[in-house]
Computed example of a mutant assay.
Amino acid sequence: MNAEQIEAYVDAAAAALDLPIAPEHRPGVLRYFALAADMAALTEAVDLAAHDESAVRFEPVAPGGQS
């Protein structure tokens, strides 16, 4: 995503959620959204085959290691 697309997306998402973004926070919101978009693009660029397995599933345990 380019800077204009990121700004448009953040503005639309904030409006849809009725989430005000303070002017002093806007540069940080845009910067971190751009970072997340870059990470998503890297993830999407990995080719997976039908036989690739998903990540290990998290299973919580009771405190003390007893389930």
Rank of each mutant, 00 (worst) to 15 (best):
Leu17Val: 02
Gln66Tyr: 10
Val10Ser: 04
Asp52Trp: 00
Arg57Asn: 12
Thr43Asn: 13
Ala3Asp: 06
Gln66Lys: 14
Ser67Gly: 11
Ala62His: 04
Val10Gly: 02
Gly28His: 04
Glu4Asn: 11
Ala8His: 00
Val46Ser: 05
Gly65Val: 02
Thr43His: 15
Gln66Phe: 11
Leu35Trp: 15
Ala15Trp: 00
Ala62Phe: 06
Glu53Met: 03
Ile21Lys: 06
Ile21Thr: 00
Ala34His: 07
Val46Met: 15
Ala15Ile: 02
Ala8Ile: 08
Pro63Glu: 02
Leu19Arg: 07
Leu19Lys: 09
Val29Glu: 05
Ala45Cys: 04
Ala49Asn: 11
Leu48Lys: 14
Val46Asp: 08
Glu44Pro: 12
Arg57Leu: 10
Phe33Gln: 08
Leu48Trp: 14
Ala40Ser: 11
Thr43Asp: 15
Glu24Ile: 09
Val56Asn: 14
Ala16Lys: 10
Arg57Thr: 12
Ala34Phe: 05
Gly64Asp: 03
Tyr32Trp: 15
Leu48Gly: 13
Pro63Thr: 03
His51Gln: 12
His25Glu: 10
Arg31His: 15
Ala8Leu: 13
Ala3Cys: 08
Ala55Gly: 08
Leu19Trp: 10
Pro60Lys: 08
Gln66Pro: 09
Ala36Lys: 11
Glu7Met: 08
Ile6Glu: 03
Asp47Leu: 15
Glu7Lys: 13
Pro23Tyr: 05
Glu44Asp: 10
Asp18Met: 08
Val29Cys: 04
Asp11Val: 13
Phe33Gly: 12
Tyr32Val: 13
Ala62Lys: 03
Phe58Ala: 14
Ala12Ile: 02
Leu30Ile: 01
Ala14Phe: 03
His51Val: 13
Phe58Ile: 14
His25Lys: 09
Gln5Ala: 07
Thr43Val: 14
Leu19Asp: 11
Gln5Ser: 12
Glu7Ile: 00
Pro63Val: 00
Met39Cys: 15
Ala45His: 09
